[in-house]
Design a protein around this nucleic acid. Structure first.
Lengths: 148, 148
DNA sequence: GTACCTGCAAAACCTTTGCAGCATC
DNA sequence: GATGCTGCAAAGGTTTTGCAGGTAC
C-alpha cells in the first residue's frame, strides 16, 4: 500500500472521525484500526480475530460490532470479493483500490489503477438519481502460480 | 435485460454448452436456466428456490449443486454484490452487465454501461501475469426513494 | 453517574456434503 | 446398465443478537 500518510496519521484521522461521530475511543477500536491500516489487502472478520494483537485483546463479537460501526462512520469499507465472508479495508480519503483475485488459490492483491470508473460514477448518478455513489471493482482470474 | 436473443435461443445455447461439457439435460436444469434467463437482475439461491417453478420441481440442494455446475461450465456467473448471499446471473456470450445497488433498501439494478474496464483487463493481465481475467463492477449508493 | 462498549453464549443464516434411490444417456 | 443427478437430512462456517457487567466520558 502506498504510504502517502504514516500509520500514525491514518490512525489519528480515523479516531478523530469516529469521535466526531459519536463513537468512544477504546483499546479494541485502536487495535482494530491499526490492524486494518497495516493490512496490504482487505481482511475478513476471522482473519482479523486471528491476529494476536486483536485476539488477545477482544472477542469476535466485539470486532464484528466494531467493524459495523467503523464502516457506518466511513473510516473503513466493506467489500464482497466473491467469497463467503465479507472483507474489510481501511478507507483513507482520496485513496481507492481495486482488487485482483485468483479464482484458484484465493490470493487477493490490491491494484493501484488509474481507474476510469470514477467518470462513470457521475454518469450513473445523473442517469439513475442515486446519490452518494461509490464503486467496487474486482478482477478475477488465475494467478501465474496456479496456472503453472 | 436487452432481448437481443430470445429466451428460447438463450436456453438452447446454455443447454448445448452444458451437454458438450458433460452435463445431463434434466428438468431441474431447464427450469433453473429459464428462471435465470427471465430474471432482470442477479438472484440468490434462496430467491431461486422460492420461485414456484423451481420449488415445486426441486430441492434446494439440487439448485445449489446445479448453480455450481452451470457456473463451472460458464453459462452463468456468480456475483458478490456486497450481500451475505451469493448472486447468480445468466451469462450470454458478449453480454456483460455491471450493477447498481442501493445500500439502504438493497435494490439491485443491472446497468448496461459502455464499460471502460475491458481495456483495463488487458493491462492488468500484462502487468500481473494473471490469465482468464474477467471483472465485476458494482456501484453502491442511495436510491431516490430511500433519500426521499 | 450515564450511556456506550465488551464478553460470553446462543441463535439465525447460508452454504456444503453424505448417502440411498432415480433419471439420463 | 452405468454414471450422474436428485432429495432428504445433517454438518460446517459466518454472521447476528441478548444480556449482564465493565469502561469511556
Amino acid at each position: 500500500m502506498a504510504e502517502a500518510e504514516t500509520t500514525k496519521e491514518r490512525l489519528e484521522w480515523a479516531i478523530a472521525v469516529c469521535r466526531e461521530r459519536g463513537l468512544r475511543r477504546t483499546r479494541a477500536m485502536e487495535e482494530l484500526l491499526l490492524a486494518l491500516i497495516a493490512a496490504d489487502r482487505p481482511r475478513t472478520l476471522a482473519e482479523l480475530c486471528g491476529l494476536e494483537s486483536l485476539s488477545e485483546q477482544c472477542d469476535k463479537a466485539t470486532v464484528y460490532r466494531l467493524l459495523g460501526r467503523l464502516q457506518e462512520k466511513g473510516v473503513i469499507r466493506r467489500l464482497g470479493l466473491h467469497e463467503r465472508a465479507a472483507y474489510y479495508a481501511f478507507a483513507y480519503p482520496g485513496e481507492h483500490f481495486d482488487y485482483l483475485v485468483c479464482t484458484d488459490c484465493g490470493k487477493i492483491e490490491a491494484l493501484d489503477l488509474e481507474c476510469p470508473v470514477e467518470t462513470l460514477e457521475k454518469e450513473v448518478m445523473n442517469r439513475t438519481g442515486f446519490s452518494g455513489l461509490y464503486h467496487e471493482l474486482e478482477f478475477f482470474g488465475s494467478c501465474p502460480q496456479c496456472v503453472g
